[in-house]
Design a protein around this nucleic acid. Structure first.
Lengths: 195, 195
DNA sequence: TCAGGATCTGACCGATCGGTCAGGCATGCT
DNA sequence: AGCATGCCTGACCGATCGGTCAGATCCTGA
């Protein structure tokens, strides 16, 4: 019965990804995952410290890419920030459609967990960048709607190939984002990035 | 202790609305609602048949307006459908920010419940209308992203007055929607509306 | 051959969930 | 006074949740 560690570990991870995508994090029980893998719930908890650790390992690659994008945004302002944010986020959303779909609507509660504490700040900075660091309500609203909409919608287009979806989303974002007239290169706010 | 029926009934409804908005439907227990009202969980279930009935009564006004919008869309095609869908949905989203926020991410599961069975079809038709009934992937993607994004984002702008938010969203939608060149007035599909 | 670690499991735990039920209590009608 | 009705409650129910634990089983290296 005992398989190689990496094998079962990976099977649990894959099953969890499928179930989380369909039913969400809270809507999926460890029992559900164990049933799909064909092992006991105790086995799931042997390979992962707890349910949250399972989610964290599932999200790690996407979070890494998100962090990279955040780094690339530091110092950019105006339309330059908008373009980098648009390209970076669209690419991330397309590549990690499934992972993002897992978080569908459970962001507020999940962000309270320590493993995801910093994501809120990163996504706030991403929204500001997409708004060209403008404080006009229209720009902020457009940026938030686009980020939320892309996150929400990506998981639904499983039938569209990556590059086609990426191109369509990028076109949409460029058309929808409020243009920033002056790409003034000096940083408008110094407390934009912590530490 | 015994208050007038309408009083407690309304208090429960208001408390449920607040809790659902913050923690979601599944994330809120009947105990939580009872605690905020200052009554027992049994009292909540005296005034409402079950938890789902509470949600249904909370959503009834918004669903009614959504139905009206769906009716107004029948027969419209091309840019006319786009404009009516845009105005109608933006107005609905702004007026019922709180109610929409309740459904945050729980749509898939909640739509399975009989009280909300038809909403999926209505929102599909709304998406098609916003896409100008075009079958181009770009149009479909833009429509879905906008609908999802507005639904998701509206609850976050509690500090922006209704008319200002409505104007900003409408501007965004008009800018972001893929234009339909020919507003051809003949109905392109007859099986668009059921029964 | 055998010790020991890795893997896996059934049984169990406390907590919480939505929901039920019999009965207490006030009020108002007859 | 007696009774019905509306409102409310504590106690309780079965189900399910995430998580623990002692022990069975298997594999491997000395």
């Amino acid at each position: 019965m005992a398989r190689a560690v990496s094998e079962t570990h990976g099977e649990i991870l894959a099953a969890a990804a499928r179930q989380f995508t369909v039913s969400g994090y809270r809507g999926t029980s460890l029992q559900d995952i164990a049933r799909e893998v064909g092992c006991s719930k105790a086995t799931v908890l042997y390979h992962f410290a707890n349910k949250e650790a399972l989610l964290a390992e599932l999200m790690a690659p996407a979070i890494g890419v998100l962090r990279d994008l955040d780094d690339r945004l530091t110092g950019l302002t105006g339309s330059a920030a908008q373009e980098v944010a648009a390209q970076g986020f669209v690419d991330l959303a397309v590549r990690f459609r499934r992972e993002i779909a897992v978080l569908r609507g459970e962001f507020p509660e999940l962000l309270c967990q320590p493993a995801f504490a910093h994501i809120q700040q990163i996504s706030d900075r991403l929204r500001d960048a997409l708004a060209g660091h403008s404080d006009r309500p229209g720009a902020r609203i457009a940026a938030l709607v686009l980020l939320a909409g892309i996150s929400e919608a990506c998981g639904e287009f499983t039938d569209i190939p990556d590059d086609e979806l990426r191109a369509a989303l990028l076109t949409l974002v460029r058309r929808a984002v409020e243009p920033v007239d002056a790409p003034l290169p000096q940083p408008p706010t110094t407390e934009d990035k912590d530490s």
